[in-house]
């Protein structure tokens, strides 16, 4: 079972709630995904275009809500947003994101580390969005993070596991759950991350903006389960040449 900050989860798929066409599609997709951890963002209410209440569509009895700090460009903005989420009543979990560059949305490692130290000290369960840097992953662990969330490729890019070699090292070294986040485009990308031994994956855009988000949520669920089951079963080593599957003796 996946365990983060002392809480156990049977699903290893975390889903984001952005970009869905409606609350009802989102709700159905979350159900189809089987996810027990769901991310939300915090924003000023747009008075001219009051959107549906996203919180109303999330079943708190079954789902751990994970507010993110998206929009924060430095540590102090991220800390402020995290505290707003907690004061609002969303609990003490936070997905820390510090992204100063809007074009690639790559996380600032220095401010991410600073914010992790402060938020962990202040009693938050900090799940940290980070570049796939194994040394930073260890530093975040020391700073009190509850999970590291290395990016596979830039957010929403659907480019898949571009950072796989570094993610492999993070998984090898980490004492924390490793959640591969960002850039997973297809169910096979998620399955690949899980086969490598990732503890979980986070998917938003690939589900929400597909032609059929509910069906795609189910596809990611199956891929995550297949990948994890394969990892637990022990995937065999690859070889340079053929090894016959049929007996080599008694050939007719």
């Amino acid at each position: 079972m996946l365990q983060i900050a002392g809480r156990k989860f049977s699903s290893r798929l975390i889903v984001g709630t952005g970009k869905f066409s409606s609350n009802s599609v989102m709700k159905e997709a979350i159900n189809a995904s089987g996810s027990e951890i769901v991310t939300v963002a915090l924003r000023r209410v747009d008075l001219d275009n009051t959107q549906e209440d996203i919180i109303e569509a999330i079943d708190f009895s079954r789902i751990q809500i994970l507010p993110n700090t998206s929009g924060a460009q430095n540590a102090s903005e991220a800390i402020k947003i995290a505290n707003i989420g907690r004061n609002m009543g969303l609990g003490n979990w936070v997905k820390l994101e510090v992204t100063p560059d809007p074009w690639y949305l790559l996380p600032d490692p220095i401010d991410t580390l600073k914010a992790t130290e402060k938020l962990a000290k202040d009693g938050f369960a900090v799940l940290v969005y980070m570049n796939a840097d194994p040394v930073l992953a260890k530093r975040l662990e020391d700073a009190g993070a509850e999970a590291v969330m290395p990016l596979a490729s830039p957010i929403g890019s659907a480019r898949g596991m571009k950072t796989k070699e570094m993610i492999r090292i993070i998984i090898e070294n980490s004492n924390l759950p490793v959640v591969v986040d960002a850039g997973l485009g297809s169910p096979s990308d998620a399955g690949y991350a899980m086969e490598m031994g990732a503890d979980a994956v986070l998917v938003n855009t690939a589900i929400a903006t597909s032609d059929n988000p509910v069906k795609m949520a189910k596809a990611f669920k199956l891929a995550v389960e297949a990948g994890r089951t394969g990892y637990e079963a022990g995937i065999i080593a690859s070889k340079e040449h053929a090894y016959a599957s049929s007996p080599e003796k008694g050939i007719i």
Partner: peptide, 10 residues
Amino acid sequence: IDIISAVGGG
């Protein structure tokens, strides 16, 4: 007055 709420996000 500033009013902040949760919205969809990843």
